[in-house]
Design a binder for these strands. Structure first.
Length: 478
RNA sequence: GCCCCCAUCGUCUAGUGGCCUAGGACACCACCCUUUCAAGGUGGCGGCACGGGUUCGAAUCCCGUUGGGGGUGCCA
């Protein structure tokens, strides 16, 4: 594996286990690793932790690579290495275990899980009591290899949390090799990190309790441990670690719901970290380039952070709003049903850009322009509340009749003329424009809210506008 | 139970002993603007968990309490 080490500089790694979806928490740690790699000029190693081969499926790895690429972590970037597969390295793990056994750092034990538990109860200790430490057992079927935890204290120097110390007495002799000879996560993880010459392990805090064990393994294997960094976990509203069961954690899902990668990346990075200058700027919206330049593990907050979809939405809205027109039009058009006229959409698109929370809102914002038209079209489904409110004023029917007459007669069919025409009526009826346009809006779009009305009518065209207004008038007068 | 981590507005955070009458962002509320809704502008609501120290001085340092989280597998 060492032949991969060609690029100088620190070596970071991202080591997800394939589960069929990409966790937003994983996305965050991947991004942090990536930011550091880009600035320091090191290497980002992707390693798929598929030790539990029953769970491994090729398409899941593909999903991980895709998700990373979406976030801007491209496998064709010069700093990217991998994916490597942990399962492909099983021989190396077992060889390392063998060395540990031979050097006396590990020993075999023939107790079953149940027996370990029974002993613990009888002796009233927690976990494994070291029963086979000095029994000199040789390898054999059903025998697990356990690490001989030395006496003393293990101090983990953590880049985000400082020194964390663990009394080795509280750490049991953990299993390295299962009874069937298969390596455990702890072993495989460390051996791979050693083999891949990893210098920085940046991951979520849930791994912190494992770290002293891993550090002892590094030492027993004859290597100085890497720099550790444990960033706080992401939690839900109940302050529990984000879990697949309860929470929406799949990056793919946010992606398919119309969230922009840039918004997601920016938001994820602000969880536990604030870009310097954000306060002066009055905004947390920052470019990836500045994140790369400024992100530091030392500045990461120490408490769990709530993944707040509302704030993500706010970020997304900002990002959609600031897309340049061509990019925006392409992204928005992609959300449309195939049979909707793209040219027609292009005319209204600019008017909805700053009204979108996600790209998924696009069709619903302009659907009325693509409904069936003409005399044979089915009647428009009005939003009841909107209709009731707009139709309520006593002048509603009269105004609508006047609008129909005026719009049937205007010479130029453009939004300025339509607006001016409506303003004439508004003065006649002594009402505000906002009120005057309410009924026509419901009549044409079916709803009380939507894009600017006159611009929309311009796109819709005279015939269909008048037809819809007339249909509404018929309904009104009953 | 045991081990480890953490503790500033509802949320994400700035803050590393005096600049704090604690700042910003999201959310929420109000007003302005307005072609509905947005966007934009202005303002508002709202927090240093508690108790002891240390110090001339504590959100900042120490101790304790309480609260929250993570871990505790022949899972990863």
């Amino acid at each position: 594996m060492n032949e991969h080490i060609s690029r100088p500089g620190p070596r970071f790694r991202f080591a997800p286990s394939p589960t069929g979806f990409f966790h937003v928490g994983g996305a965050r740690t991947a991004l942090m690793n990536w930011a550091l790699v880009q600035r320091l000029g090191g290497t980002f190693v992707l390693r798929i932790e598929d030790t539990d081969e029953a769970r491994n499926r090729p398409e899941w790895t593909e999903g991980i690579v895709d998700a990373l690429a979406w976030l801007g972590i491209s496998d064709s970037d010069e700093h990217f290495e991998g994916p490597h597969f942990q399962s492909a390295n099983a021989d190396v793990h077992i060889a390392a275990a063998q060395r540990l056994f031979e050097s006396g750092s590990a020993y075999y034990c023939d107790l079953t899980g149940q027996e370990v538990q029974d002993r613990a109860e009888k002796l009233s200790v927690t976990g494994y009591d070291g029963y086979s430490r000095d029994r000199g057992l040789e390898p054999g079927p059903g025998r697990v290899l356990r690490f001989r935890v030395p006496e003393g204290v293990t101090i983990v120097s953590d880049l985000v949390r400082g020194d964390v110390s663990f009394d080795n007495e509280t750490i049991e002799d953990f299993v390295l090799l299962r009874g069937n000879g298969a390596p455990m996560f702890l072993l495989a993880n460390v051996v791979d990190d050693v083999e891949m010459a990893i210098s920085h392990v940046v991951r979520a805090e849930e791994h912190l309790p494992n770290t002293p064990k891993q550090q002892m393994l590094w030492n027993a294997l004859g290597h100085a441990p890497p720099a550790w960094a444990h960033v706080p976990v992401l939690v839900n509203e109940q302050r529990k670690k984000l879990s697949k069961r309860r929470d929406k954690v799949a990056l793919e899902q946010y992606r398919s719901e119309g969230f922009l990668a840039d918004a997601m990346v920016n938001y994820l990075m602000t969880l536990g970290w604030t870009p310097p200058g954000a306060e002066e700027a009055g905004s947390e919206i920052v470019s990836w380039a500045s994140i790369e330049a400024d992100f530091a593990l030392e500045d990461v907050n120490l408490s769990p952070a709530f993944f707040d979809v509302k704030k993500l939405v706010a970020f997304n809205k900002q990002y959609i709003k600031s897309m340049d027109s061509a990019e925006y039009l392409a992204a928005a058009s992609a959300e449309l049903p195939d049979d909707w006229d793209r040219e027609r959409f292009a005319m209204i698109a600019p008017h909805i850009q700053e009204r979108l929370e996600t790209l998924k809102d696009v069709p619903g914002a302009v659907d009325f322009l693509f409904w069936p038209q003409g005399e044979d079209a089915p009647p428009i489904q009005y939003d009841d509340a909107a209709w009731d409110k707009a139709a309520k004023p006593e002048w509603a029917a009269a105004l609508l009749a006047d609008v129909i007459e005026a719009y049937g007669a205007v010479e130029l069919w453009d939004h300025e003329t339509l607006k001016a025409s409506m303003e004439d009526l508004m003065r006649q009826y002594e009402i505000k424009l906002g009120k005057a346009q309410a009924l026509p809006r419901v009549a044409v779009t079916g709803r009380a809210v939507g894009p600017p009305l006159f611009e929309a009518l311009e796109v819709l065209g005279r015939n269909e506008t008048v037809r819809r207004l007339t249909a509404a008038a018929d309904r009104l007068t009953g």
